[in-house]
Simulated scan of single mutants.
Amino acid sequence: MSQTTILRDRVKDHLLGQIENGELVIGKTINLAALSRTIGISVTPIREALSQLEQARVIKAIPNRGFVVTDLTIIEAKNLYETIAQLEVMALEASTFEPGDIEALRNKTEQLQEEKSLNNRFEFHRLLIKNCTNSVLLQTLESLKVRLRFYEQAHATDSIFFETANRQNRSIVQAIAQDNIPTAALILKMNWMAVLEHVQLKINGQTVENQNKSN
């Protein structure tokens, strides 16, 4: 691995950490000079990392302003969730599970019940498909889920959302434990579609609220 690639990956890891921690939000401009000082890396690999995130539709370049985290839309949410649902079902169907894997999934559902956080939710889905051997599929999902975090950070953080999603998580694990992957895949797709519906309702509600304020 080249030095440039290593530096670029360090920048991406730093920015992804900011996304996970809620420090990088919609509409925020990424200051290249400040970022360079913070992580001690020159501007060139930073630009390369930002270009990769732009290709993943996480950010966009605006003339005379720089890189900005892009706005959320109902159409993009629909496309993202439907695509991720299909791909994750494919990854699940291509996975095998040992008793230790099932136990790890059960433990994560219990942790999510106690600590309702997006990091735990995304970790459950990572554990669910980690045994899939299709690396291209996993990399594609990882890239799409970076953008997805912005939707869930903005619209999917209430207790009801987590409780509903985690009930379906338990059903998925139960089906896997019974060696019933088709049922697990069906519930998994329903899980993503339920989250999509929740996010769409929140976006619609926010849109109506903003329109009322402007009138």
Rank of each mutant, 00 (worst) to 15 (best):
H198C: 04
E197C: 10
H198Q: 07
I187C: 12
I176D: 01
L201P: 00
W192K: 07
T183Y: 01
V195W: 03
Q206W: 12
Q178R: 15
N169K: 07
L196I: 03
I187H: 06
N191E: 09
N169Q: 05
N191M: 09
Q211H: 03
S171R: 15
S171L: 13
T183K: 10
A175G: 10
V173K: 02
S171C: 13
N204Y: 07
L188P: 00
Q174I: 09
I176P: 01
N180G: 07
Q168N: 13
P182T: 08
N212V: 14
A175T: 08
Q168C: 00
V199F: 08
V173F: 00
Q178C: 12
E197F: 14
Q200P: 02
T207C: 02
I176N: 04
N210F: 11
M193V: 02
Q211G: 01
I203C: 03
L186P: 00
I181N: 09
W192H: 11
Q168T: 07
D179Q: 15
M190C: 09
L201Q: 13
Q174R: 14
K189T: 02
N204W: 08
N191F: 07
V208T: 05
D179I: 05
I187A: 10
N191G: 15
N212W: 08
I176C: 08
M190V: 00
Q200A: 14
N180R: 09
A184K: 03
K213N: 14
